[in-house]
Design a protein around this nucleic acid. Structure first.
Lengths: 217, 217
DNA sequence: CGAGTATACGAACGTTCGTGCTAACTTGTC
DNA sequence: GACAAGTTAGCACGAACGTTCGTATACTCG
């Protein structure tokens, strides 16, 4: 089965690559990610996206061979931003517990800072496509699994370092932390107040202390 | 400002009410709620809904004056089902704590029982429209507020009865419970396993015990 | 400078969307 | 059994959708 009409070969680097094209593509994806948190990945239409970016529908469409490829590129773009703002800042933590707290704090900051009008990109979009089979859904589920595994690994490290009780189930603890983070985001975008953020922060901190962690500052 | 062409006047009870019409309307809304948990309220199109129900587009459309009224009726229908399966079974609890546990158990059962292919109707749909102003969003936000207030009231009653510590912030506790319930649903629809359900159950029970509640059974 | 190509545009495509009109059929009431 | 009202189907509309095509611009490299 040969690949059918793929206008942009990712593995085979296009002969030439112009700087203005890269800038356009970047502006498109930035706006696409923003719009997707409001209208969803499906509700995001190419015409309206083109209007928002300020270019023609066909000119925009030429960057991607199909709407699905546009959606995938949008997800990839949002992933990069998430990595920069949440994952990387926590990666240089000295211990597992610090890294866990860094991920939690990084996520809540990432929500507060209003990167997207509709809150966390992945929270908005995952609920939309979780029942629609296809590569977009698969990519997003993969992201969530990766994120949960990252939380879980931090818990495990903290247990190995003795800062979290070894009787705690890491998957269970990661589940509880993620639940609070997601609901904090969901509530934040509707009430636009610090209250849900602080509630999640307090709940997670208490939960960690109950799991044997020493209180932070 | 007069209302423009409302085909069904709710306040003025229509003279006659035919049984086949009621049955059709019910079948339509049942299917609409199911489809909405997969494709969303916006992704739900009248043509596909008509096909799924087995009637013509215009015949279906005649029951509602607009797509928005169809969406509102669908939300109302889902609310009724939620009340029957979650709210009412817990309403005859003897104490606040029992009622709280009844609501939690009722919700998780309502998720497990697969009423909708895409899990909890409100969880699916709220994330979709929380950024799209309009009566549909308003109705759904009202539902969530009502549900949270119900959890909070049960906590407060339990405090008045001495079964939950009076130092606990009822809003905070309701926030944590709802976060776990929502994430249990979200995870359940993607992994289709009892694991997230049981994790939520365990987390909530532990949280209640930490808040001073006596363990159940 | 001129050749080649990445980028963008405008127009048009076929399809699906929500909605409106009209006629036929079905049901409940007298 | 007739008549009114509720219910459904057929057909058509304008708009928006994703997508394709031909073409014009503008950058890059030889």
């Amino acid at each position: 089965m040969a690949r059918i009409r793929s206008p942009r070969q990712p593995d085979r680097p296009a002969r030439k690559l112009r700087s203005d094209g890269e800038r356009s593509r970047d502006a498109i994806l930035r706006e696409a990610a923003r719009l997707a948190t409001v209208d969803g990945l499906g509700g995001l239409s190419i015409s309206r996206l083109a209007d928002a970016v300020g270019m023609s529908k066909s000119g925009l469409f030429a960057h991607f061979g199909s709407k699905e490829e546009l959606q995938l590129a949008t997800v990839e773009r949002a992933t990069t931003l998430f990595d920069e703002q949440v994952i990387e800042p926590a990666s240089d933590a000295a211990s597992g517990l610090e890294r866990l707290r860094g991920l939690v704090g990084g996520y809540l900051r990432y929500v507060e800072v209003d990167n997207f009008p509709g809150g966390c990109f992945f929270s908005s979009v995952l609920a939309e496509v979780d029942m629609q089979p296809g590569p977009v859904r698969d990519r997003l589920v993969l992201f969530l699994d990766d994120w949960l595994a990252r939380l879980e690994a931090a818990v495990r490290d903290a247990q190995a370092e003795g800062s979290i009780d070894s009787e705690e189930d890491p998957g269970q603890l990661a589940f509880e932390v993620e639940a609070l983070l997601l609901f904090a985001n969901a509530q934040y975008v509707v009430v636009r107040t610090q209250v849900p953020i602080e509630r999640a922060r307090r709940a997670i901190e208490r939960r960690l202390v109950a799991a044997g962690a020493k209180p932070s500052d």
